[in-house]
Design a protein around this nucleic acid. Structure first.
Lengths: 342, 342
DNA sequence: CTGAAAGCGCTTACAG
DNA sequence: CTGAAAGCGCTTACAG
């Protein structure tokens, strides 16, 4: 390993002081143009790069953001939820755009992940992503709050700090789903997905769905809801229960695409056709949604936009700037699992 | 933001020198047990964390690895290849296991991504992942080599340094695919995927496939090969060409799952049944492979193992240790797209 | 416009 | 077993 050049090496070669080198490299306007160019030329020639550890130490900031992806250990396989995977991609891109490095880490919900990223100056702030029961989540959030760590999170409420959260307008998304199912001529509905306080996003989707049905004059007590966490197999299992109940249903709105895929798998096994016998609608628009058979009609969450906002908001927080956007808008993606509008 | 505690604060509170605090926190055996425990208790109480920038600066290493995911800009959408996404997951996990942080970055193949990660001491080494034409790739690799950067990469040869590469036994994988297609009673084959020097992995798969056919006494000149990069639409397009050629074929081996999915999409559009009319086989075993219709029979690359080896090998390199494993073994995953063994 | 100097928070060789 | 001191490579207030 050849020794790395330092600013002193450049100073020596350029015949100036190390201070001047430092200024020249940072394009300080107070350094003479010629000096600056000379210094920069030498730096380039030596393939010099500012030592990040030294400059971070000096500046007391790292230009690095940490992404904590926590997963519920109950998940089948160690497969990462595809929705979060898309998020990861867009966050990475957004960081690059903003000149930030991104430290990525996967955590079990049970771990002590409140994490020393910021405490140890490895990152200036933290982005939190993950499903799981939000109640376990809460105390960790409180801890971050107590430490005055800079952070933003997806979906979960931060007690007393709505600006720290970014989420979809889940309620509207649920409503749009309901309206589409109505518009495609369906009459007997079910919802598959947890709808308790531990799953606030799913609950909101459920509520929005109900909003649409109520507006259409339906009797809500007739709309069964089956619990399912965010997995395929949970969707499959819930559908078995639904079928076993004997309740007649011609459309199922699922709290996520993964659940919807599980639902369709069960329906296929039971020789029920989608959408002819039962329509199935998802939420998220993950990549597999377009590959399922039939391709899944769903409510899209724009992960590109979400990733950019998450990064942007965190940076605003770090720099003590106000945050203005905390919500992204859902969008109906019509494919084939719900039939056509009448 | 409350001020962070430093080792001096602890020293003051514990009534010892800062040197001793530093030693105690690192569990140095040369510090008295009582002193050590006292210091550690105070550290915990203050929620003290070693400043990474300072310790990295002092130690001249960062305990951080950088992952460069480069993507070919020709890719449809900004969708990340699912195979690399799985890799990302397993690399992240492997890093955590080894006490390393992971800096993630997406790069365009055209960028100057040889990257200053190591030069600027942000990372101790680099992991390279990505499809694209390996010829563009080569000169960047040479540059890394010239800089004596520590790095490992997936799939691509590093001139003169086989130990820097980790790959699947692609040739064996291709052979297994060929043998399975033969065993399921197929007789007329095609290969879809680039098979030029720019795509060494695909080429190897093709060669292995041919090996199997030759061993079965087939006339290779009868096996058409259609170019396709790693995308769905390339697979779709190649299939159109194949169909237009009029050549009769009852089995298509695809260089990747994504290609295979595109091939099946085309076949479905053309009212050809899979596997009854034409069998389709993929490579990778990405998550969507099991969701396609019919579920895809494919050759699995074990991403968990690959991720662990990549991290392990890079760490070996950084520590000047020898590398012993450079290849992972492919595995046949039988689903429904090739029919059953006879 | 430039330089000498302090200091960011650690780790560790040296001395005791 | 412990302490005083040097030094990792920067940035920037201060002085000129």
């Amino acid at each position: 390993m050849k020794d790395k050049a330092t600013s002193f090496d450049i100073a020596y070669m350029a015949g100036v002081s190390q201070s001047t080198v430092s200024r020249a490299l940072r394009n300080s306007p107070q350094v003479n143009k010629e000096t600056r160019e000379k210094v920069q030329a030498i730096a380039r020639q030596l393939n010099y790069k500012v030592d990040k550890n030294a400059s971070n130490l000096r500046n007391q900031r790292s230009s690095t953001l940490a992404l904590l992806l926590f997963e519920d250990p109950t998940t089948e396989q160690s497969l990462i939820n595809p929705f979060f995977l898309s998020m990861l991609g867009s966050i990475t891109r957004a960081c690059a755009k903003r000149g930030q490095d991104l430290l990525v880490s996967f955590q079990q919900l049970s771990d002590d992940w409140h994490a020393d990223y910021e405490d140890s100056n490895k990152a200036d702030g933290i982005i939190l992503l993950g499903y799981g029961d939000y109640k376990d989540y809460e105390e960790k959030l409180e801890k971050l709050l107590a430490q005055e760590t800079h952070f933003v999170c997806w979906g979960a409420d931060v007690h007393g700090h709505p600006e720290f959260t970014l989420r979809s307008n889940n309620r509207l998304g649920g409503r749009i789903a309901g309206e589409h199912l109505l518009a495609t001529g369906h009459k007997a509905f079910a919802f598959v997905g947890n709808a308790s306080a531990g799953s606030p996003e799913f609950s909101e989707r459920y509520l929005g769905f109900v909003d649409a049905l109520v507006d259409a004059g339906m009797d809500i007590s007739q709309v069964p809801q089956y619990d399912a966490n965010f997995t395929e197999s949970a969707g499959d299992h819930a559908t078995e229960q639904l079928l076993a109940s004997g309740q007649q249903v011609d459309a199922i709105f699922c709290a996520s695409d993964l659940i919807a895929i599980g639902v369709m798998r069960c329906l296929k096994r039971r020789n029920l056709r989608v959408p002819e016998d039962i329509a199935v609608m998802g939420f998220d628009d993950i990549p597999v949604a377009s590959f399922s058979s039939p391709p899944l009609t769903t409510i899209q969450q724009d992960t590109t936009q979400a990733g950019e906002l998450l990064v942007n908001n965190l940076l605003q927080l770090i720099n003590n700037q106000p945050i203005t956007v905390n919500q992204i808008e859902p969008k109906l993606i019509i494919r084939q699992s719900c039939g056509h509008n009448l």
